[in-house]
Amino acid sequence: MTHQRLSLLKIIKRSLFIFLGAVLVSVGLEIFLVPNRIIDGGIVGISIILSHLSGWALGLFLFLLNLPFLIIGYKQIGKTFAISTLFGVTVMSIGTTLLHPVPGLTEDPLLAAVFGGIILGIGVGMVIRYGGSLDGTEIVAILFTKRTPFSVGEIVMFINVFILASAGFVFGWDRAMYSLIAYYIAFKMIDLTIEGFQESKSVWIISDNHKEIGDAIVARLGRGVTYLSGEGGYTGDDKKVIFCVITRLEEAKLKLIVEDIDPSAFLAVGNIHDVKGGRFKKKSIH
């Protein structure tokens, strides 16, 4: 019974955030981008162009153009992903239709590109973070990457460059450049929304004062450390390597700790996409 309740809560949470994400995308499109003839990449960009040329509702194109990719996604990627994506696309299509009569908040294309890109990126990031998608080009990229040497990101970028260039012929080259700004901002916001401000980072420190630095990290950051044995490739000397995992917000403080104790210490920081197990817990931001 408890397992069923937890599963139900997960489904409700996923549905809620996909719904909110799709609504935000609708707001970013109809309140900022579309009134100023600024497009996004992917199926959304194609839909905006077709809606402008035909006079038909944007929501209709968003749904119909994504439908074939949803069927492909269901067969190739998975049932849960396809259902989550169908739900998100449906909400986005209805949302853009309902918001279309609402006047845009600004006629300044730069403001529209910036704020539209921010809202759009947060919305898309929320949907992706909770297991869905709002754009069929991502599904195409996933399938193509299995047959080509290109990565998913490279394929999506190629498709979007073509779509954004097409906007220059339809809306004018100044709008195409504003579209590029909106796309870049949305791309960055998607990354930030998926990873969060507390994105995990791995830290490697090599220092003769390893014990003092390790104790300071435990005391001042509250993070556990692991001491690894190493050997200098040039000198052959035995070295102690400190390994720990921190959040993005703790990076600056950790660097200060190391700088205070040993300014000559070797320090390497890298991004980690996921951390599970052990004693690591992401601290809430207040």
Rank of each mutant, 00 (worst) to 15 (best):
V102P: 10
L192F: 14
H286K: 14
K75E: 09
E195A: 13
D174I: 09
I94T: 04
K281L: 14
T148A: 10
L105T: 13
D191P: 04
V102Y: 12
D237H: 11
A265C: 00
E212Q: 14
R5Q: 14
L24S: 05
G117P: 05
D238Y: 12
I246G: 02
I190G: 07
I77S: 04
R223K: 04
I185W: 08
E251C: 02
V27S: 07
T106F: 08
Y227Q: 04
L53C: 08
G117V: 04
G230K: 05
S179L: 07
C244P: 03
D260P: 00
F169R: 12
S47N: 12
S202A: 15
V25T: 12
Y184T: 15
E138Q: 09
M92Q: 10
G236Y: 04
L111Y: 14
W173K: 05
I46K: 04
G45W: 00
L134W: 05
I49R: 08
K79H: 14
L120N: 14
G270I: 00
N209D: 14
K281E: 13
L58K: 05
S51M: 08
V44Y: 01
L99P: 13
A268Y: 04
I18T: 12
K282S: 12
L20Q: 05
I261S: 01
H273N: 14
A176I: 06
L180R: 08
G88E: 10
R147M: 08
W56E: 13
V156L: 12
W204A: 13
I285A: 03
D260W: 00
G224R: 10
K239C: 06
L249R: 13
P149A: 02
L143M: 15
H210R: 02
D237W: 00
K13M: 07
